[in-house]
Design a binder for these strands. Structure first.
Lengths: 154, 154
DNA sequence: TGATATTGCTCAGTATGCTGACTATCAGTA
DNA sequence: TACTGATAGTCAGCATACTGAGCAATATCA
């Protein structure tokens, strides 16, 4: 019988578990209350002003039913706004608020620190190699989840 | 501004997302209804008959509040049993049932297939290297999550 | 022994993620 | 233009994960 440590699925779960814990701890130490998921969504809204929810979901590989709640919480915290689209009455356009911008700016050091901490057992070269291999495995498996990564349709 | 693809945290989330989707798809194709988390718990109960919930949680790095629901579902499916411990009246002893054994045995090919599929973008050597680096990063970060990996106290 | 600390487990509440279903709207075509 | 299929978003329901609180039982130590 294979050990858990030989199962990439188990290692994936465990690494993700640690990554989230480190992120939340660093962000809280910096005085903010933002999850990794909320951070990625907010940063993507800032980089793509006016995008709709499906496009946002595709850019960060979230499920469309998950993004609704994430945006709800960003809006509730005053970090983002949801407006009806003028071009498509089904869609909602997303914008970052001034408060959202300030939060992103101030939170960046904590986010970068978290990324370092979650790789602290590895040398710089090993960290790069881990990211390369993850990117490669993810690219090959992109279509296997319900929420694949998608380019923005511009 | 760093890209998501340079964030180990984002890559961790994405790889885990694909790993779970692949696992569930393979297991369902094989005619079973078991999540990765439930599988790991059941396999660990089989390997450590009579263990209590805290020990089980430590062996697979689950939170103690998460394990309760997982076991509930294993018991409800008739794959495991929860009995009061004779040595410690606070604790519950866990046992796998015959049905649980049969399920584990029949599900193994699907589980192994899933592990291969989630690494299908990598060569065998790269897959080994990815697992090595994940193990190393996880070992260094073990204490950073609320649910660290623990050895069984035998 | 008696007080205190610790441990095993559960529960309520919150946040992802997913399945599947539904409404409203849009786009393509006969 | 009317029909058909696809798309944007939401909702209900389920399964992890976590925080924090609480209960019962055990362990420790003055």
């Amino acid at each position: 019988m294979k050990d858990n440590n030989d199962m990439p699925g188990h290692l994936a779960r465990r690494f993700q578990q640690i990554a989230v814990a480190v992120f939340l701890a660093e962000v809280e130490d910096a005085g903010f209350d933002l999850t990794p998921v909320q951070y990625a969504a907010l940063a993507t809204i800032k980089a793509n002003p006016g995008l709709d929810q499906v496009t946002l979901a595709g850019l960060i590989a979230y499920d469309r039913t998950t993004i609704t709640g994430v945006i709800d919480r960003l809006v509730q915290k005053g970090l983002a706004e949801r407006r009806p689209s003028s071009r498509d009455r089904r869609a909602r356009e997303l914008e970052i608020t001034g408060e959202g911008r300030r939060t992103l700016r101030k939170i960046t050091p904590a986010v970068e620190s978290a990324q370092r901490i979650m790789l602290r057992g590895l040398s710089a070269k090993e960290g790069e190699e881990l990211m390369r291999l993850l990117r490669k495995a993810i690219a090959a498996g992109n279509e296997l989840s319900r929420a694949p990564l998608r380019d923005a349709q511009v």
